Simulated assay, not measured.
Amino acid sequence: MKKRLISSYDEINDTFVGKVDGEKGYCADYGISDGIYLGINNSNFPNSIIVPQASKVLDTSKETLESPDVKININCDDIFIHFDLCIEDSKICSITCKNSFGIPKMECLIDSNI
């Protein structure tokens, strides 16, 4: 499945936020890695990401985080969540964590360029 991403970066507070276009509200935020939080809707599908202290957590420059060209790829099965964050076609972050959050089996590309 493909969805449109709206992302923003607050340089003063060093916070990166990405949200699926058209999604309203959320059910919960889950820490999938140190400093990276995945928001899910009431159907347990991912609909946002929040990264406080983003330049430190993602180990990249604030200038890179300001780019509007962002893609998030999320693949889930019963055991794992695989999460990739790319900015300007460069992989900034790749995480695999246990799917202990009840997210259903899915493959989703959330892209700012759709």
Rank of each mutant, 00 (worst) to 15 (best):
residue 4 R to Q: 12
residue 4 R to W: 09
residue 8 S to Y: 12
residue 8 S to R: 15
residue 9 Y to M: 06
residue 11 E to Q: 09
residue 11 E to F: 03
residue 12 I to C: 01
residue 12 I to V: 14
residue 12 I to A: 11
residue 12 I to N: 05
residue 13 N to R: 09
residue 14 D to C: 07
residue 18 G to I: 03
residue 20 V to N: 04
residue 20 V to K: 07
residue 22 G to R: 07
residue 22 G to V: 08
residue 23 E to I: 01
residue 24 K to C: 05
residue 24 K to V: 14
residue 24 K to M: 11
residue 25 G to M: 07
residue 26 Y to V: 08
residue 27 C to K: 15
residue 32 I to P: 00
residue 36 I to N: 04
residue 37 Y to F: 15
residue 39 G to E: 08
residue 41 N to D: 15
residue 42 N to R: 05
residue 42 N to D: 13
residue 42 N to Y: 14
residue 46 P to Q: 03
residue 48 S to Y: 14
residue 49 I to S: 08
residue 51 V to T: 10
residue 52 P to Y: 02
residue 53 Q to Y: 03
residue 55 S to F: 06
residue 55 S to V: 05
residue 56 K to D: 09
residue 58 L to H: 03
residue 60 T to F: 00
residue 61 S to T: 15
residue 65 L to K: 02
residue 65 L to P: 11
residue 65 L to D: 04
residue 67 S to C: 10
residue 70 V to M: 11
residue 73 N to A: 11
residue 73 N to S: 14
residue 74 I to R: 06
residue 75 N to K: 15
residue 76 C to W: 04
residue 84 D to K: 15
residue 85 L to E: 04
residue 85 L to K: 02
residue 85 L to Y: 00
residue 86 C to F: 13
residue 87 I to D: 05
residue 92 I to T: 12
residue 95 I to L: 05
residue 95 I to E: 04
residue 97 C to P: 00
residue 98 K to H: 02
residue 99 N to S: 02
residue 99 N to K: 00
residue 101 F to H: 07
residue 103 I to Y: 11
residue 104 P to N: 09
residue 105 K to C: 08
residue 106 M to Q: 14
residue 108 C to S: 13
residue 109 L to R: 03
residue 112 S to A: 13
residue 113 N to D: 14
